[in-house]
């Protein structure tokens, strides 16, 4: 293993285990991992280890396959990057297209979901965004908050919140019954059995529905054809003193990303123009690149915002 990479990881065994597995499957990825890990603060390295432990708890038994699927996923993402920089747009624009190519393709989804799980550990902007959420949310959300996460994936954001945020209740929603079952199973393996997991379309909410104190949408809005419509609807179920956390990547081509935002202001407007006031925000570019340079080169930036209803 690359000595420099080993030195950066230090005494973080889960991170080391995953990095080694990836390098076994993809030796040429060493330089990327070294750069990604060297950009991290101590706090971000601690989050990395926490996420690595969770990833190993979820899928550690099939780590070599997971690492191979991470490489496969990165290959797909490079194809989307090439299209994006050539054409200046995301390849797909409708949910029907993404459903046909990705969500309804079981073989594709199995590899893609594995790849995304390891990206949560190994990509700088993912870990930095998670660290921001993990360190800022406890000081911003009400005590005994009722939390709702929409589009939870492996459920890692809900897992961290249930573990550390002093919630009174947690609920997750997804459109897909398969995804809901996947999240329920993942949370159970992480030792979190108390989460209400439901098949629910965020567009179906109304003023009479139960209110939530903390609503989380992490890497969800870019998968939706009209994310502003979703935020306008969700405004109705955020409690008056409640908070939303939105993490949305800009300039982020991916096989199932539909809604392209090119600037931080376009991401902010998703909240400002739909009934929210941004309380706190942070931005994290791929590989820890400086924001100005990332925006100039249309490189992915994760835009994280805590906002309250106004």
């Amino acid at each position: 293993m690359n000595d420099a990479l080993l030195g950066i990881i230090g005494d973080r065994p889960a991170t080391r285990t995953i990095a080694l597995a990836i390098l076994d499957a993809w030796p040429d990825h060493a330089r990327y991992l070294e750069k990604s890990l060297s950009a991290r603060t101590v706090s971000e390295l601690q989050t990395t280890e926490l996420l690595a432990q969770a990833a190993l708890t979820l899928e550690g038994a099939r780590l070599p396959e997971l690492a191979a699927n991470y490489r496969w996923t990165c290959d797909r993402l490079r194809e989307e990057e090439l299209f994006f920089h050539r054409e200046g747009r995301y390849r797909l624009t409708t949910f029907a297209e993404a459903d046909a190519e990705v969500y309804s393709n079981d073989a594709y989804m199995e590899r893609y979901v594995d790849g995304l799980l390891l990206s949560q550990v190994m990509w700088y902007n993912h870990v930095a965004s998670c660290t921001y959420y993990f360190t800022q949310a406890p000081g911003l959300i009400p005590s005994d908050a009722k939390m709702l996460e929409i589009g939870p994936g492996h459920g890692l954001m809900t897992y961290l919140a249930v573990r550390d945020f002093g919630l009174s209740a947690a609920t997750v929603w997804d459109l897909s019954p398969v995804s809901v079952e996947h999240t329920r199973s993942a949370l159970a393996r992480l030792g979190i059995g108390s989460v209400n997991c439901a098949v629910r379309n965020a567009l179906s909410v109304s003023e009479t529905d139960d209110k939530f104190d903390f609503v989380v949408l992490s890497e969800v809005l870019e998968h939706i054809e009209d994310p502003a419509e979703v935020m306008r609807k969700l405004r109705a179920i955020v409690a008056p003193q409640g908070l939303v956390f939105v993490n949305v990547p800009i300039n982020s081509p991916s096989p199932d990303h539909l809604y392209l935002m090119r600037t931080p202001d376009e991401a902010r407007d998703l909240l400002r123009k739909t009934g929210f006031e941004i309380m706190s925000e942070a931005m994290f570019a791929t590989q820890g690149m400086k924001l100005e340079r990332a925006l100039k080169n249309a490189v992915t930036v994760s835009v994280c915002m805590f906002a309250r209803p106004v």
Binding site: R31, K35, C74, L82, H85, N297, V299
Partner: peptide, 18 residues
């Protein structure tokens, strides 16, 4: 080659090619 330039990685290589 990429070995000589720190910022030349798999992602910036795509921007270089385009």
């Amino acid at each position: 080659s990429a070995a000589d330039i720190e910022e030349w990685d798999s992602l910036s290589n795509i921007r270089f090619m385009v």
